[in-house]
Structure formats: C-alpha cells, structure tokens
C-alpha cells in the first residue's frame, strides 16, 4: 500500500509538472484583454503539485502503518488480471473486427474458459447479447456501432 501510495503521488506530481510547463508556454499571466490561456492550468498545476507533495509526505511519514496492508490482498491480483486481460484483449479486437464479432468471441472466451459455464449457456449468451444490442442500438436508437475492417463482409446486416 505504501509503495502504491508513493507511486500515485509521484505520478500526480509529474502530471502537475507537465501541465505547468505547458501553462507557462501558453502564458500564465495577464494578456491584452484578460488572463491568458495558461492562467487557469497554471494555478491548477500549482494546487495539484502542492497536494501531491502533501500526500507524498504523509505516505512517507505514516509509511509503517500503510505498509501493513498490501495493495492487493492475497490472491486478488490473479482475480483482477482474469478480468483485466480479457477486457484489454477484447478492446484490441474491437479495433480490428468491430463490436459484434468482438462481443461473440469475448463472451464465449470469458464465459466458457474463465467462468467455466456450460457450452449451451455460453453459446446462448454469445449469440443473444450481440443480437439484442444490435436491435437496441442500431434499430431503435439509430446509433451505428463499428463493424470493423472485416465485419461488413462477415455480418449480413
């Protein structure tokens, strides 16, 4: 927990630094007709910088208390990754083959392999879910979802 606390505070500090550099480039002060574009971001970066320094300081001071709790409880990291990795994979697939094929592949993969549900249930959800989203989004609410580079040929609609 302590390390996570410190890393997060440092990340915020880095963001504050980037924003401040950009704000100074844009002009943090007074222009011809009022505050310039960098004015608001400049003061934001100051506040973010100070608060992240304070959080960092607190984390270092109360370090031993924080260190008692692990960021990931035992076994949790595996659980989180079994959700996270397929999700990231599905997003990558989304980019290539569009929504509907992604949904089918991802659902089948997740429900069958990680979830260990029966094949019948897996296939039913894998087909029903994309069909229902198609009806709701494309037919009723006229929001087209991407069909991807191959999707147009693969899917008959």
């Amino acid at each position: 927990m302590k390390r996570a606390e410190i890393i997060t505070a440092l990340a915020l500090l880095v963001i504050a630094g980037f924003v401040m550099r950009e704000a100074i480039r844009l002009g943090p002060g007074w222009g011809e007709a009022g505050p310039r574009g960098g004015f608001f971001p400049f003061w934001l970066s100051v506040v973010l910088g100070l608060s992240s320094l304070w959080i960092l300081f607190q984390a270092l001071r109360h370090g031993s208390q924080l260190a008692r709790n692990a960021f990931f409880p035992p076994g949790a990291i595996r659980q989180v990754l079994t959700v996270f990795l397929p999700m990231a994979g599905a997003f990558a697939l989304f980019e290539v083959v569009g929504f509907y094929v992604t949904a089918l592949v991802y659902l089948v993969f997740y429900i069958r392999l990680t979830g260990r549900q029966s094949w019948a249930l897996t296939v039913a959800v894998g087909i029903l879910f994309p069909t229902v989203t198609f009806l709701i989004f494309e037919r009723w609410f006229l929001i087209p979802l991407p069909k991807g580079r191959f999707g147009e040929q693969l899917l008959p609609f």
Partner: peptide, 22 residues
C-alpha cells in the same frame, strides 16, 4: 461470468458512441 463481460461490453459501447472513435 455472464454479468461481468456484459457490463464491460456495454461500457465499451458507451465510450465508443461519444465520438465514434475507438
């Protein structure tokens, strides 16, 4: 195992539909 991927897929539609970009 059915709810989790369904919610994730719906979330991805929500995010995509904002600007129609992946």
């Amino acid at each position: 195992p059915i709810l989790t991927p369904s919610i994730i897929l719906l979330s991805s539609i929500g995010a995509y539909a904002v600007n129609n970009t992946t």
